[in-house]
Amino acid sequence: MEDILRPIYQERASQANTLGVLIIEKKQKSIMTTDTFDAVLLIIVKEAEQPVFIKHYTYDEKKAALHIVTQEQLNKWLLLGSNRKVFEWLYIGKILFDRNEYINDLRTELMEFPFHGRKIKMGIEFAKLIRRYTDGKAFFDNRNYLDAYNYVVHSLHHLARLAVIENGFHPEVTVWDQVKQIEPEIYKLYEELVSSEESLDKRLELLFLASEFLIHSRTKVGASHIIDTLSEKSSWTFNEIMNHVELKEYSIDLGVLIEYLIEKGLVKINNVETKGQGVYHRNYSAEKLS
């Protein structure tokens, strides 16, 4: 397949904008890695009009996919974990072209998982966990048990990913296999939720209690990134927090996370007077992590 696709990737490799080219070929037992295609060509470029461009090819009853991705988009996927397949492609793909060792350096960085990168990923994962847990609890309190179940499954997934990141690994391939080895307590919770013979409301009730303890025990780790960022100055408006370069990726989960951290005493509200009688601007500041 590589020989057949050579003219396609060689043309791209000759362009100064191209940083690297990988080919990922379908293995019999891992058809999902390539989304059923016989091969995927991943081309990473410095910049492009579209952050992601995909083209499909066919040859002798075989099919291939070409993915051209900008460096910025790739970095976003790696930070957010929003395209887990790309981790696998970077790990197992065969390097066909590598400008200035770009892909090799990227692989090394992924293997070493620098601490600052881990802190950001833990923060984003923790924010998602709090959002799912809070919404799930609200559904449970209103006796919407099926909706609560859906949110609890997602919150456990984020808790599992947080535990994997905390232990220095990328949770991008087989999360529950990783968690079974690293944090069996979380795996057991998940197992009890999906396979217990208790009634759904009873399962959820027990799970919320257990989850609350596990979330509380990880609050300082999960909140470390946002607290460190908020410590850069004494007071913030929510808009300033939302638009901070490192906090933008917390996205819609940021508001719920701030309220949770206020409840836990890690963020303080500072009321600033407005022109309106008895109306205050609500600013925020970080309390030191003990």
Rank of each mutant, 00 (worst) to 15 (best):
E183V: 03
P184R: 01
D177M: 10
V194T: 15
H225W: 14
S231H: 10
K180D: 08
W176P: 01
G168L: 01
S199A: 15
E192H: 02
L230A: 00
E197N: 12
I186A: 09
W236P: 01
T219M: 10
E198F: 13
L206M: 12
T237Y: 10
P184C: 04
E205H: 06
G222C: 05
K202P: 02
I215L: 08
H170W: 15
V179A: 01
S235G: 10
Y190H: 09
T174K: 13
S217R: 11
L189W: 09
L200N: 05
L209K: 13
F213M: 08
Y190Q: 02
A210C: 02
E172G: 14
S195G: 05
Y187N: 09
T229H: 03
S231P: 01
S211R: 06
K233G: 00
S231L: 14
T174R: 13
E232M: 14
E185F: 10
I186G: 03
G222I: 09
S224M: 04
K233T: 04
A210R: 06
W236L: 11
K180M: 06
D177I: 11
V175H: 01
H225D: 13
E232R: 15
S234Q: 06
K220S: 10
R218N: 11
R203P: 00
S235I: 13
V175P: 00
S231A: 14
E192P: 03
A210D: 07
P184H: 01
W236I: 12
E205Y: 07
D201I: 02
Y187K: 01
N167V: 06
Y187F: 11
Q178R: 13
S199P: 07
L200W: 05
S234M: 11
F169R: 15
G222A: 04
L230S: 03
F238P: 06
E192N: 07
F169A: 11
E212L: 03
E191C: 07
F169Q: 14
D201N: 15
S231K: 14
V194I: 15
K188Q: 09
P184L: 09
D201C: 02
L204A: 10
N167S: 07
E185T: 12
K202D: 10
F238Q: 00
W176M: 08
K220I: 06
T219H: 01
S235Q: 12
Y190T: 00
A223G: 04
S224N: 10
I215Y: 03
L214M: 14
V173L: 12
S235F: 00
Y190I: 03
